[in-house]
Computed example of a mutant assay.
Amino acid sequence: MSYQYLSEEQRDRYRRFLTDPSPENLEQFFYLDADALAEVAKKRGPHNRLGWGLQWGTARMLGTFLADAVGDVPHVAVDYVAEQLGVADPSCIKHYAERLPTQHEHAREIRGLLGLREFAEAEAETELRVFVASRAAQTRDSRRELFDRAVVWLIENRVLLPGITTLAPLVTNVRAEQLAAVNEHLVQQTPVEMRRELLETMVVPIGKKVSPLEWMRTAVALLSGTGMKEALNRSVAVWAFSAGAWMWAGSFR
């Protein structure tokens, strides 16, 4: 599958609550500001007001609306929002799932208040691609790391998270494209003679167990004069490329 490279923990927490939000998370994401309180006051019934408030928080924290799964919101978040709204019995939230159209209506209202964008919008996807490509070009982030950074970027830029089968392959493809572009740039900047030398370092000489490249990239473990000599030999080998002679040849022997 397109998201198999992700860890089990990454897949499990995508657009879900795995643990209770911390007190800091509650204040950052589930605190209802003046605009939110004004809107939620229009709702009929404590379960609808509480459900609206929880949708507000989950959209901000997880980048998605839980809709009929609002019952999956941790109790600490339910209690935190209920206290703000003066809802005496937080268990009334169970009634919120009884009318799906109401939940969808609330989601539309919250999208407008928060300025949330759907990922399907061309602009949002293009911006994310630029971000991932930039990270891939400037860092050594793995696909897993880039995926997590993409999730954070989307939430911070108020873009609703797409399905995992959409985001995971996008990260893979953009990273592959960017690395290919970086490699092509390096090849173009590398003199032809050096390219030949580099290719030859991957060939295992007769009578040897490893290639010169593997020898050069293997760390020296001996903390002694001999070890220092080996380390210097490797440095000489690297600096010898396109210097006019195979200075490392004698060292490798």
Rank of each mutant, 00 (worst) to 15 (best):
S224K: 02
A107H: 09
A136Y: 07
M216C: 06
R111V: 12
P205D: 06
A180G: 02
P90C: 08
P169V: 03
I110W: 04
V152D: 08
R195C: 09
R117A: 12
A107K: 08
V159N: 05
A120F: 00
E197Y: 05
E200Y: 07
E109P: 00
L199I: 12
P212H: 05
M216N: 01
I110Y: 03
W215P: 07
P212Y: 13
I155M: 05
E123W: 01
M202V: 08
E214M: 11
R195W: 07
G112S: 09
S142V: 14
A231V: 05
A221G: 00
A120I: 05
C92E: 04
R217Q: 11
Q178F: 01
A150K: 07
E214V: 14
G207P: 09
E197H: 08
E109S: 13
E200S: 15
Q138H: 12
F147R: 06
I93Q: 07
S91L: 09
V130N: 02
E193A: 14
K94G: 02
F147G: 03
F147A: 03
T201H: 13
C92G: 08
G207V: 09
R108I: 04
I164E: 10
K208A: 06
L170R: 06
A219H: 06
V171G: 03
L167N: 05
V182Y: 00
R143G: 13
T201Q: 14
V187C: 02
E125V: 04
R196Q: 12
T218S: 14
L160V: 01
T201Y: 13
L113R: 13
V210A: 11
L113F: 00
L232C: 04
V130S: 05
E98P: 00
L161G: 06
R195A: 08
V171T: 07
E230L: 15
E156H: 07
K229W: 09
A181H: 10
G225W: 06
A124K: 00
T172S: 13
L100P: 03
A221L: 10
N157V: 02
L160H: 06
H95P: 00
G115S: 02
T218F: 01
G163N: 11
V182C: 13
E109R: 12
E145V: 13
G225S: 06
L223P: 07
N183M: 10
T226Y: 03
L113A: 07
D141H: 15
T166G: 00
V151P: 03
E118N: 13
E230K: 12
L100N: 01
R196G: 11
T218C: 05
A88R: 14
R129D: 00
A107C: 15
L116I: 03
R135T: 01
F147C: 07
N157W: 02
M202W: 08
T201M: 14
R111S: 11
V220A: 08
V159I: 15
V204Y: 02
E214F: 11
E197T: 10
M216A: 14
A136P: 11
E98R: 15
